[in-house]
Amino acid sequence: MTTAPRQPITTPRLVVAGLVVCVVLAAIVSFWASGHPDGLEFVAEKLGFIDSAGEHATGDSPLADYGVAGIDNARLSGGLAGLIGVVVVAAVAFGLMHLLRRRGTTDDQD
């Protein structure tokens, strides 16, 4: 815990702290997520058009429906899928934003 209130947290620290939170949410907290159908699914079931959904083209992906194929333990399977998702999204998003950014900063700091 930092004690200097006027000292803002540096960007790298903020990003690392944020990523830790994301890993905890995706790999651990996600186990307790509601398994109820979501808003769109619920409406589609109620009004009777859920069956028009086709088989998913990547439905046999080893990570389909946020589980890792071959791992029976739901907590481990879902947690690992969440962790893999975080790593993949991070790799693509940080890479893309890094490529697109303007060099330097308009105002200083960091």
């Binding site: 995706a26 998702g85 991070a90």
Partner: peptide, 22 residues
């Protein structure tokens, strides 16, 4: 820019993680 690009990466990851939490 150099300052905001890392935050943009973090935002994408956060949205992914949060979307797992029904």
């Amino acid at each position: 820019d150099d300052r905001t690009a890392p935050l943009a990466g973090l935002v994408a990851v956060f949205v992914f993680a949060a979307q797992m939490l029904n």
